[in-house]
Design a binder for these strands. Structure first.
Lengths: 118, 118
DNA sequence: CGGTATCCCAACGGATACTG
DNA sequence: CAGTATCCGTTGGGATACCG
């Protein structure tokens, strides 16, 4: 059988799997949010303390979107004062390699981390 | 010596290396552009043929930005009609792993590619 | 062929005030 | 404490027409 080489077209950007991933983890603040969650659960206020310049509304929306995409899990404790903890889902955990890959490339190619250790 | 654990803060989003990488490769059309270039040099018109719905202006700006970031190389041949070829720089080539990582995660977690092979 | 120029719209991000 | 509501500026992406 002959295999005809079909050139894949990108009729819309969403046909690209990479674009699809970046739609989920991209934007200005989602990367640090996911990065922090890779270390463990975090409360709403903690995000705001660690990222002092993110607007509350933006933080709120990012968390909602990540939750809707199945990346993070929101757990609210019915206490006074209220406590809400965010953590990574399994799907979110599976991003660990991806995030390290992106971070690694950045350190080598954007931050000019010297290769002096070599 | 005791090592005090310093919590890294993200005063601006750009403090996050992952955000920095996504600033370079992100957006709607840059991923497919880089993806295509990983297979070899491409001419301006070819991009437009493979991605029929990208606006000329957008394609043009994406290519300019990628060039400014040192990811791609633009080579113009002084012919009539003119010919311009885009290819990856070394820095651009170094994105291969990153792109595969992003693409792989997408196939497993967004496109629901069955794991039937297991 | 390989682009620019112009105009437009929606989405994202941001500051501040307020609420359960 | 953990958000929402409102308003606003900037950016990214898009359609169309035109140029060297």
């Amino acid at each position: 059988m002959e295999t005809k080489k079909i050139e894949k077209k990108f009729h819309s950007a969403e046909d690209c799997p990479i674009t699809a991933t970046i739609d989920v983890i991209g934007g200005k603040w989602k990367p640090p949010i996911i990065w922090l969650l890779l270390k463990g659960p975090i409360r709403f206020g903690e995000f705001n303390r660690i990222m002092p310049n993110i607007a509350l509304k933006v933080l709120s929306r990012c968390l909602k979107e990540l939750e809707a995409d199945g990346i993070i899990i929101r757990k609210a404790y019915p206490e006074i004062p209220p406590r809400v903890e965010y953590s990574l889902s399994e799907k979110g955990e599976s991003l660990r390699e991806v995030m390290f890959s992106l971070s690694d490339w950045s350190r080598k190619n954007i931050m000019n981390e010297s290769e002096s250790a070599l």
